[in-house]
Design a protein around this nucleic acid. Structure first.
Lengths: 226, 226
DNA sequence: GTACGATTCAAACGTTCGTTTGAAACGGAC
DNA sequence: GTCCGTTTCAAACGAACGTTTGAATCGTAC
């Protein structure tokens, strides 16, 4: 809103408009199904604007993710740093909340904000090209490692492997929840169209209990065929 | 293998070959990214064979899912029916296993079997067209309702809404696990490339504990803004 | 006003897509 | 051998895709 930068004022507008339009369409129809013509039309821009500002469609995809990813990961990082990992009490709940809340809270942001991005994050690992996937992993891994370290401290009875799996169950449940939200509402006949806050509480309860479960017994030492 | 049906022997071959090839490519690159030319080439069939046997690409997609979905849902149903819902002991673990195991066990089937299908199931709700999605919901809902009924019986302390959410967390964790398995292995630096059996045990432990968590306290009665 | 870099625009490029077509090849029935 | 329904095949269709091009337009500095 503030007119701090006087030069290059208009080109920023279409750049951001393209990012917003792409984000919205990606979250609704997927990346491949969103053509540059749909995106530029929604943004009120010319078809060639994408290549002028981003070089290619893949450059646009990369920009859509990197615009939101850094702030998201930063917020997760700072929330985790504020957690009290010494007490046994609700430390796990705090860590889960630090991981999940930044994404889920973005679901209620004003349209044109990060609202669509949350939905997009769930399907992030299946659709994009190999190069974009590599960028995503590179961007997400540092924060994920921090969270794994915190959970390792709080759950010393788990093996590294089982801890990793449980973290993945957490991430999967979260991703599936934010990306399939509308479909879930339909599937459950509108019983589950809770707001982000309520959803977040349910999610933290469930995942905290799952993480706290005793270690899985089983044929551990001798490994298994597959 | 048995030559029970003598007539229409060869056409079944290309039909199945098309389904196998489509299933494999869908699971690797997604549905939209798998062109009919790639599919027919992989199947050793002519391009026009798809339209002859399935009418359109969407018909092929529908056939790919409906071929595996019914047996999968039947197996889930029968495993659930064999659960002992009276005892409090490991009933929840049994129910979770009945829901999850049929999908995960298909991951180790012989190539050309349902192996690729398990991977495909995870991304099922994001990519397909609205019509295919409707078919999927219609196919999956009866079994899901059965499982919800069983869980309702075992977890009487939960509201319908929270029970539904927890079931969705379970489904999401399962789907994400089977569909992103290879990427998870890379993300965890090969720590999490467990076989299906080990993965299944970890998953059941985690989800059973999550389902058993006490009901979430919070501002329930007055509802919330969103 | 003129010149210049930055940005927008309409039009076209070549490619690939799903689909259609009409003829060729197949396989039992008579 | 002839016929006929079934299945395969090569070739082409129109449409949509990502991308490129070169001129028009804008805002700013001189």
């Amino acid at each position: 809103m503030t007119e701090t930068e006087t030069r290059t004022e208009h080109h920023v507008d279409t750049r951001e408009a393209l990012l917003d339009a792409a984000e919205k369409l990606f979250s609704e129809h997927g990346i491949q199904a969103s053509s540059l013509r749909m995106i530029t039309q929604q943004a009120g821009a010319n078809l060639a604007a994408v290549h002028y500002h981003f070089g290619s469609k893949e450059g646009l995809v990369r920009a859509v993710f990197s615009r939101r990813l850094r702030p998201l990961e930063d917020e997760r990082f700072h929330l985790l740093a504020a957690c009290d990992l010494s007490g046994e009490g609700l430390a796990i709940e705090q860590v889960i909340d630090a991981f999940v809340a930044p994404l889920i809270r973005r679901m209620r942001e004003t349209p044109g904000g990060a609202q669509e991005f949350a939905q997009l994050m769930g399907r992030v690992f299946t659709e994009p090209s190999e190069e974009v996937r590599a960028m995503l992993i590179q961007e997400l891994k540092p924060t994920a490692d921090r969270f794994l370290g915190a959970l390792r401290q709080l759950l010393p009875h788990l093996s590294d492997k089982e801890l990793m799996w449980r973290f993945h169950f957490l991430a999967g449940g979260m991703g599936h929840t934010v990306s399939c939200r509308k479909m879930l509402a339909r599937f459950s006949e509108e019983l589950c169209d809770s707001g982000p806050d309520e959803m977040l509480r349910y999610l933290v309860t469930f995942m905290a209990s799952g993480l706290r479960a005793p270690a899985t017994a089983g044929p551990d030492p001798q490994g298994e065929p597959a």
